[in-house]
């Protein structure tokens, strides 16, 4: 039984369907899917061409957490909770920017939902504009690298900490580069009663400027450089991190992608790469990513 169909409209090599099918399969399709406006919605929910094999709803860009809370409340009120898990699939823009209000509300009330943030690090559906989860140094269409500016200035919003700070029982990050990690975390998450948050790093071939054939490699490099740490919090406590054997320099990750290419020629590129390396180092320090050599 397929819970997500072939024939959807994603670009060849897109990470979103990989994440979605992994989540749906991990839950044996016992899912009420709630989706925000964005790439996933556009590639999967055209009228008459619906790719979903589970009950699905899309309402707006910024209210998926609220809609999910409503579905959950309805199932509770009508004693239908056994029918399935309420799972949100929302983009990084929908999550960290425009929808953070409804998300915070749903976390605060601790609705029994699993919120999956599909983090492709920009508004990809509308043509690669920056979001709160765009990393610094990325050239997007609203933070283009120019004569003066080296792409986005600022930092990637720490949604993991924001989720943890809400006191929800389960928070994790994962990556399309590691589907078994997604599977394990999803299965574990739904054992917790209350709001769960998993942020999945998902390569966007078009926005990142990569070929599909290296999408998984790039996703794994984000983890192996320490830029995208895979962590797990249970009841606010860090319970697991994916250790890195020989942490790679961030350049190895950056140089493969068009969105960072300017960093290797731009006047401020070096500075930006240094900053990104610093963020990776800080992640390593904070989460203890490095596997100590004996």
């Amino acid at each position: 039984m397929k819970y997500f169909g072939s024939g959807h409209g994603a670009c060849p090599g897109c990470g979103l369907p990989i994440a979605v099918k992994t989540v749906l399969n991990a839950l044996d399709g016992k899912v009420f899917a709630v989706n925000s406006t964005g790439c996933l919605e556009i590639i999967s929910s055209q009228y008459g061409k619906n790719a979903w094999g589970v009950p699905y709803i899309h309402s707006l860009f910024e209210n998926a957490a609220g809609v999910a809370a409503g579905v959950e409340a309805a199932l509770r009120a009508m004693k239908r909770k056994d029918e399935g898990y309420v799972v949100v699939f929302a983009g990084d823009g929908a999550t960290a920017d425009i929808g953070i209000g409804t998300l915070s509300g749903a976390f605060d009330r601790n609705h029994d939902i699993l919120y999956i943030c599909l983090d492709n690090e920009a508004y990809q559906n509308t043509g690669h504009q920056q979001s709160g989860l765009t990393p610094p140094g990325e050239s997007t269409t609203t933070t283009p690298a120019g004569k003066v500016l080296p792409g986005k200035v600022g930092r990637k919003k720490d949604m993991i900490s924001i989720a943890v700070a809400h006191g929800v029982p389960y928070v994790a990050s994962s990556s399309v580069g590691y589907v078994s990690d997604i599977r394990r975390k999803v299965k574990k998450a739904v054992k917790f009663e209350g709001a769960k948050y998993i942020q999945i790093h998902s390569p966007c071939v078009t926005g990142w400027g990569i070929d599909g054939s290296i999408a998984i490699k790039v996703a794994r490099l984000a983890v192996e450089t320490g830029l995208y740490p895979l962590v797990e919090f249970e009841h606010g406590k860090l319970t697991s991190v994916r250790k890195i054997k020989d942490r790679k320099p961030v350049e190895e990750y950056l140089k493969l992608q068009r969105r960072f290419r300017h960093l290797f020629t731009h006047e401020k590129g070096k500075e930006m790469i240094k900053l990104l390396q610093r963020f990776a180092d800080e992640n390593a320090e904070r989460y203890g990513l490095d596997l100590k050599k004996e």
Partner: peptide, 21 residues
Amino acid sequence: LNLGAISEPLQSEKLKTGDWG
């Protein structure tokens, strides 16, 4: 015309994307 643009499941499979690549 389905009420409120509600769609039946797994209809995307009608679309053969095999000629994209």
